Amino acid sequence: MSAVLIVAHAERAEAVSASKRLVDWLESEGHTVELGRVEASAIGRSELAADEPIGTMPDLAVSVGGDGTMLRSFDLVAAAGVPVLGVNVGHLGYLTEFEPAQLTETVAAALEGALGISVRMMVSATVRRRPGEDPDDPDPHDADTWTGLNEVVLEKRDPGHTVRLEVWLDGDMFATYAADGLIVSTPTGSTAYSLSAGGAVVAPTHSSLQVTPVAPHMLFDRSLLLPPDTEIGIRVVSERPALAAVDGRSATMLQTGDELVVTRAPYEAQFVTAGGDSFHRVLKHKFGLKDR
């Protein structure tokens, strides 16, 4: 008997229907099931609702939705080393490998250990406030930390203006960017926001951090592909504040003198995979690239 957590896009009818079908099958096989509170309510099984953060970690998490649902799933379980199986009922579904039609068969194979695991690096962001900014917390080294699978973004808050961001690499000053923002992405996140900002596509199992400026107002506008253990410090040096976000979720506001320190996360994401198509074939399919 295994414990399974289902994380679903509760606003998509197909995801709700697939989740209900999966719950019924798992229970018939003697497995323990938990869902998020919204998902549990959507399928009429509120008694299966799990608290967040999750108390007792499951053996497997099943994400039923799109890429956003996958990101939420890893936010819940990655730190505990729980593998996530992604079922695509979204649009592009770059992070999700499996389809709803084979849902129960796929989950059964995963629980039997018949599917592979792809390990991906994650990224961590810590905010250090300038000394004296908070009278109740004068120590700038007491800071909050967030972790993500795709990227950390520090971008302008005010439309029509840029922010000035000072970038340090392993303690050495690199450059000051005048831009709409900066993205620090993992290889998995290279096909997300970083791609739309002109960043390179990086194979997801590669280990690196990519720094990509968003609409830079300067001659140097290239992405930096850095070793995975690089410490990237980004300090706000303009009078305008900047908003930090991790995997699309707003984290906090940074004022002048505040610093965002981005590093490799201390744990990794585990994707359940069938081990079929290579990265370049998946890329070709997802982006509709044609043979000539």
Rank of each mutant, 00 (worst) to 15 (best):
T252W: 08
H31I: 08
S196L: 02
V184Y: 00
W146R: 13
A265T: 03
E155M: 13
I43E: 04
G81T: 05
V261Q: 04
Y193R: 05
D172L: 08
K20L: 14
E239S: 10
H161T: 14
G66V: 13
E14P: 09
E151N: 08
A114M: 06
T32W: 05
L149V: 11
Q210T: 14
D180Q: 10
V261T: 06
S46G: 02
A175G: 00
A215F: 13
A42M: 07
I6H: 06
V202E: 05
G81Y: 07
P241T: 12
A79Y: 05
D139N: 15
D24E: 15
E27Q: 14
T186D: 00
A49N: 11
G160H: 06
A15W: 05
D51F: 05
H161V: 11
L48T: 08
S28A: 14
G36M: 13
R128A: 08
A265M: 07
D158C: 03
F74D: 12
M121I: 09
G116H: 05
D59E: 15
H217L: 14
L115K: 07
V82S: 10
P228Q: 08
E155Y: 07
E29F: 02
S28K: 12
G113E: 06
K20F: 04
L92S: 13
G199L: 01
K156P: 04
R281Y: 05
N88S: 12
A197E: 03
D24T: 11
A251G: 04
L226I: 00
L149A: 04
A143T: 13
T104P: 04
R249Y: 01
E97A: 14
E151D: 15
T186R: 00
I6K: 12
Q210L: 13
D67E: 11
P241K: 08
V64P: 11
E231L: 00
V167L: 10
I183C: 03
E231I: 03
H217Q: 12
